[in-house]
Each structure stands twice: as structure tokens, then as C-alpha cells.
């Protein structure tokens, strides 16, 4: 049982406040959507939850069965997909998947191939990522995120750069989060995408 506690976090860059005193509580089988205008700090909040950015005030804590998860253990349980996540142009799709499995200390090549098939990348698995289109990149990022069977899934604008077919796969993924015992948090600008979440936070209304 994984739970997330966000206590009263505020973030400011060079004395300019992005958001003030946000608190959240979330747990497994629970999905949360973050919405808000451009510049309301959706991505910053997601990065803070992923521990990529430190909040100016407040704390973000992950617990597994009442025990706090240390930052170095968090890496293997958490996956993050975002438009600003970039991959290595010189490496191929399959090399990325091998690298991520080694970094996260898992080994599941069958799942990797399955994911590549699911996201219809199996033909280009030996191509260098530098030659990929932005839609293919987004699909590959999902393969990389899902190959570790993450307990915590953070998605920033999940359907950006994807075609209709891709969007359907992602909507299935958002629905399946409950079944897979995943803690899902995503940001979105589309009203239609809010229905997949158990709860919605509007950062503009908090202010």
C-alpha cells in the first residue's frame, strides 16, 4: 500500500510565487488530475512530487505500509512521462529499454517487447531515437515508464503529441490505473480528460 502526503507546499522562483500552500493526500488505486491555466504551476507541482524540484516550503512524503520510502528507493517505484523529458538521440529504442531496466534493477524483456508492440514501435525498435517523430517519442516514453511496472505514475499532459489511436491507448491506461494498484497523478488542459480521475485539483481556484 503506497500513499503520498503533500504537506502545505509553496514554491517561488526568485521571489515570484508559483503557488501557495498546496496539500494533497493520495494512495494506491487512486487517480488525481491537476488542472489550471498556463503558468499556474501544474508541471512544477508534478516535478515537486517526483522530487525533481524542492519546494520552497513544505514537504512531500511517500509511504509504503506506513514506512517512509527513501529517495533512493523511490526511483524504482516511480515513473514520469512529460513533454520536457528528453531521450538520448544516439541510442535506439531497445537500448533505452535495456538501459532503464538496468538502472531500475529489473529484467523483463518480454514486457518490453509487449509494450513496444502495444505502442506500435516494434518495427522501429532498432532505429536511433534521433530519427523519431514527436509522437513516436511520446510512445517510447510510455514504454520506458511502464516497463518497470511502476507503483506511482506521474504524467504531464499525457496525450500531447499523440494521434487518435495513441490517445485511446492512454485513456485505457488511465482507466486501468485502479486495476493495476497504481497511484496515478496527471496534469491536463482538456476538460474531457478529467473524467478518468477520482479527484481534480484546480490550481487557479486554490489561489
Amino acid at each position: 500500500m503506497i500513499t503520498l502526503q503533500v504537506n502545505n507546499i509553496s514554491k517561488s522562483y526568485n521571489q515570484q510565487t508559483v503557488f501557495n500552500e498546496v496539500s494533497l493526500f493520495a494512495s494506491e488505486k487512486y487517480s488525481l488530475a491537476i488542472t489550471g491555466k498556463n503558468g499556474s504551476g501544474k508541471s512544477t507541482l508534478l516535478k515537486i512530487i517526483a522530487k525533481l524540484v524542492t519546494p520552497t516550503v513544505g514537504s512531500v512524503l511517500f509511504f509504503e505500509n506506513e514506512f517512509q520510502i527513501f529517495p533512493n528507493k523511490l526511483n524504482s517505484k516511480l515513473s514520469f512521462v512529460a513533454p520536457y523529458l528528453f531521450l538520448y538521440e544516439e541510442l535506439t529504442a531497445i537500448e533505452h529499454l535495456t538501459l532503464i531496466q538496468k538502472l531500475k534493477r529489473i529484467s523483463n524483456n518480454i514486457l518490453a517487447i509487449e509494450l513496444l508492440k502495444k505502442f506500435s514501435l516494434i518495427e522501429s525498435k532498432h532505429k536511433k531515437v534521433g530519427s523519431f517523430s514527436s509522437g513516436m517519442l511520446q510512445r517510447l516514453k510510455y514504454c520506458i515508464a511502464l516497463v518497470s511496472k511502476p507503483k506511482i505514475l506521474l504524467l504531464d499532459e499525457p496525450t500531447s503529441n499523440l494521434d487518435h489511436e495513441g490517445e485511446i491507448i492512454i485513456y485505457d491506461l488511465l482507466k486501468a490505473a485502479k486495476k493495476n494498484n497504481t497511484l496515478l497523478i496527471y496534469t491536463t488542459n482538456h476538460k474531457s480528460e478529467l473524467k478518468y480521475a477520482d479527484d481534480v485539483i484546480d490550481l487557479n481556484k486554490l489561489k
Binding site: A50, L52, P71, N72, N75, L78, S79, F80, A82, Y84, L85, F86, L87, Y88, E89, I100, L103, K104
Partner: peptide, 13 residues
Amino acid sequence: EKQTILFLRLNAT
């Protein structure tokens, strides 16, 4: 510069 540092930071200490 290539903004790939995020990939490493997500997967390693």
C-alpha cells in the same frame, strides 16, 4: 543542453 539530465535524475541518485 539536450535536457536528458531529467532522464538520469529520474532513474539514478
